[in-house]
Write a protein that binds this DNA or RNA. Structure first.
Lengths: 220, 220
DNA sequence: GAACGATATTTTGCATTCAAAAATGATCCG
DNA sequence: CGGATCATTTTTGAATGCAAAATATCGTTC
């Protein structure tokens, strides 16, 4: 089992609860549209309803939870149209990540990115793919040294992570994806800003299209 | 007094509280870094601390409020570096708004955008500027028909709105800004996607630079 | 046996309460 | 008179309590 919600055990208690709860949602422990068992989660986290509900509101604002007045909260149902919109926005941000990271990446950033890329190459299995891929893109985003961008990007990334089949990526797409990553790395190493930007945007578009095809097929 | 926080009286009670509280923050009623008077706001909104605190956590996640463990919440202090980062990300989104709005705007969108632009032309006073300018850009964002993008954009826009001197824009910049808007409209009317995208991004950059200069001057 | 409706149970949303932490300020000593 | 120490008050964070709403249960009728 790959932990998708690799949050650190840090920050305020509230932040920790948000992180844990997000973890529950991202790991698909509660399916799409499932009722969120407040009482159960309180027991599990060893807290009362007050802080849990605070976390729920935050996650609702982030788009992971849907609050239905007087009818409790549910895991936000996946809306294919919305997923497409998330990818569209993410594309814009990927482009910017490319332009900025190519120029701003420090030697440490470069090392981390190279490392993430190498790990992806070493583990071509779909099981490991999602987490490593996540790490790779996260490292690139970090190289922009723009925390506002990073956080927005991360949030969007998490939103698509909720789709189970992104996790259980198919082997063909994984292979294709790695080829795209190779090209991304070529542009990155060369410091080719616009080239990197375009490749990242294109990679996002292709991933998005794969996801949308899958969504259509599953008729979710 | 121009109401910056033009939220509607709709949605769940929770959403209304978040909106009202955001209004208090955006209208600059509480200065930068000021302690948030929980008790007072509860009185004013006629609610207890529980729902108010839920709203506070949401606004903290959005970056308007800073929660200090055991020391209460304060209006998030303005960090010039962060403001620059917000503008940088907003630039990426403006570009995308341009590319998409040029193609997707419906006749109704076009009417609304033209109207917003005309109103800006009719009221060249800095006092009215912020609200009308806000409306103009909001209308353009809406023309993308991408709610995810719209919401993210709106959130960023609100973050820069917190800077009081953006509200009290200086006349020179207002005039210059309108010229940029004119050019934006030319590209928009012509359906020139990339041209519109570039002009919007450039407009954002220039606004951002004006704000940053102001920030530096005031030494905030 | 299905459909409806009345009643019991659970869940939800918010107010209240309570313990712990921080801020305040009163007292003492140098 | 200034500054440290300790008691007092206030504020914070979270658990609990309570009324209203929704859901489930069950009996009744057709």
């Amino acid at each position: 089992m790959v932990a998708l919600a690799q949050e650190m055990e840090t920050g305020t208690l509230h932040e920790q609860i948000v992180a844990k709860l997000r973890g529950v949602l991202l790991d698909g422990e509660l399916g799409d549209g499932a009722r969120i068992p407040e009482a159960q989660l309180c027991l599990r986290f060893g807290i009362s309803r007050t802080p849990l509900r605070e976390a729920l509101k935050v996650l609702a604002a982030e788009g992971f939870v849907e609050l239905r007045p007087n009818r409790g909260s549910i895991v936000a149902p996946i809306d294919p149209v919305e997923v497409a919109h998330v990818f569209e926005l993410k594309g814009a941000i990927e482009h910017t990540i490319g332009r900025l990271a190519a120029v701003r990446a420090t030697p440490e950033d470069r090392t981390r990115i190279e490392q993430a890329h190498a790990e992806l190459g070493a583990h071509p299995d779909p099981a490991a793919y999602t987490a490593l891929n996540q790490e790779f893109h996260r490292a690139l985003a970090a190289a922009t040294h723009n925390p506002v961008l990073q956080q927005t990007y991360d949030n969007l990334q998490k939103r698509v992570l909720r789709l189970r089949f992104v996790v259980n990526e198919n082997p063909t797409r994984v292979a294709q994806s790695f080829v795209e990553h190779e090209n991304i790395m070529v542009a990155f190493r060369a410091g080719a800003r616009l080239d990197l930007a375009e490749r990242l945007e294109e990679h996002n578009r292709l991933t998005g299209e794969a996801v949308m095809r899958r969504l259509k097929r599953e008729g979710a």
